[in-house]
């Protein structure tokens, strides 16, 4: 049990950062490999459309 959780404390971090860019930069300054996603709200932020897509999928 907890094999993966245990590993994240031991393995070098490789981070996917979704959102605020400065949070990714602070990791990069510590020598961490970061893949930044400049996220945008799905379906142009229209909650009704997102719900509809969720239902369809």
């Amino acid at each position: 049990m907890q094999e993966e959780a245990h590993r994240v404390l031991q393995d070098p971090l490789v981070v996917i950062s979704v959102g605020v860019r400065t949070f990714a930069e602070s990791l990069e300054h510590q020598g961490i490999e970061v893949i930044q996603v400049d996220w945008i709200p799905p379906a142009a932020g229209d909650q009704a459309m997102i719900d509809l897509l969720e239902d369809l999928l």
């Binding site: 590993r7 994240v8 393995d11 971090l13 490789v14 981070v15 996917i16 950062s17 979704v18 959102g19 949070f23 990714a24 990791l27 490999e33 893949i35 930044q36 996603v37 400049d38 996220w39 945008i40």
Partner: peptide, 18 residues
């Protein structure tokens, strides 16, 4: 990169999502 899925494809060794 605009979606999490794109990032996963670009970095299959990622072990933390922020």
């Amino acid at each position: 990169l605009r979606t999490f899925e794109d990032a996963l494809a670009a970095a299959p060794s990622a072990n933390l999502a922020l």
